[in-house]
Design a protein around this nucleic acid. Structure first.
Lengths: 209, 209
DNA sequence: CTATTTTTGTTAAACGTTCATTTAATTAAA
DNA sequence: TTTAATTAAATGAACGTTTAACAAAAATAG
């Protein structure tokens, strides 16, 4: 819960410092002294404005989730409303936004996953995020597939996103964005009716002219 | 590195206690006092036999990895050598072995993922595990697909396994093993040549007689 | 077979460190 | 002169690890 009167610079400054610290030494060893050191301020600032370390961590996770949500919505906004495939690609693309696959953010995500298992507040954030991804996918898929099948495919795409993303965290080269997109588009194309694919291909051609 | 003269009961006892503690309060708050409490021994035992908390955590991860490896190999051993699909199902099944999807083990996995990001020893274990899964899948897929495509499909299956598994960690009902298998088999069937599917179906029919 | 020593397994208690948080004081802005 | 923003320093709790001692079992000697 960020204090209201906080100078505008403090919040992003400390959230970025938190991710830097997690990136450098992991959540376990990311002390408030180290975090405030990265931000160039006193450790007491964290308690003053965030009510403690937990509050800062929650705000950091909220910040990452907001960025993810924004990345998806920006891409969706530029899509043809009736090109289901293009819209699914947009959702996937948002999840592999360059900000989200940055090493700093990836490590912070991983840290939050294990932390969220035992902190109800973070757990709810994580659940809400999962549900949003699933509901975005479902909304599109239900237009071209029967509801049960749409759910099945949505779960598969979500799993592919998370799985590729997780495996990328342990890859020396990080997340391979292009490979991720190719895998998921390839999957989607095997699952959607041929007519849906045609619509996508035609609209893509029109765009180029 | 476990001390050699250790009584046989101590190691599994402390490893189980470690997972129980992580399941209960998370790795962050799983102190050596709590872990040794679950095991009903003194905290000093951990340093005596495992050289410290880190050593115990490493042994715990090794134990989980061994169990996973065993679950896969047991299933593969019972497979028809030439039924590629059956063998892929075996690999997937091993990864969703009932021991592996137990809440205690799932939470421990998550904790290790974030820990491994900053502990070279654990990172290597994690990498080796990933590579083994991929090479198991590749070995089978290369028999029925061209090498580049085999790699592509292997990565996809691995991502599906990890993704479903991760999402299950946040689901109130845990990992849905049957759904996982259905999703992955469904995917595999779209990717393999029709002939490979036929072999599988024929051999499955023969088995029943 | 008993007594004694040695080794093994285990622990209670103490140690030194690290950490998040609080307090009271200080600086800067309004 | 207030108020807001920040900090240095202090506080107290928690932690992993070490030490030195104790108990039990095994080995050895009489």
């Amino acid at each position: 819960m960020p204090k209201v009167g906080m100078p505008a610079i403090r919040k992003p400054q400390l959230i970025d410092a938190t991710m830097k610290a997690i990136d450098a030494v992991g959540l376990q060893k990311a002390s408030v002294v180290m975090i405030s050191g990265y931000a160039g301020v006193s450790p007491a600032i964290i308690n003053h404005y965030f009510g403690g370390k937990e509050g800062l961590l929650e705000e950091t996770m909220r910040s990452i989730l907001r960025q993810l949500s924004k990345a998806v919505q920006q891409r969706l906004a530029q899509c043809d409303k009736d090109d289901v495939i293009e819209r699914i690609i947009a959702i996937v693309g948002g999840n592999f936004d360059s900000q989200q696959i940055d090493s700093k953010v990836v490590k912070t995500w991983l840290a939050f996953w294990s932390l969220a298992m035992h902190q109800p507040q973070l757990f709810r954030l994580q659940r809400a995020n999962e549900k949003r991804l699933l509901s975005h996918l479902l909304l599109e898929l239900k237009r071209v597939l029967p509801a049960p099948r749409a759910k099945f495919v949505a779960l598969s795409i979500a799993a592919l996103i998370d799985g590729i993303w997780l495996r990328g965290a342990f890859s020396p080269n990080g997340v391979d964005k292009d490979l991720a997109q190719r895998i998921i588009i390839d999957y989607v194309e095997t699952q959607l009716p041929p007519q849906t694919l045609e619509i996508h291909q035609q609209r893509q051609l029109l765009k180029k002219n």
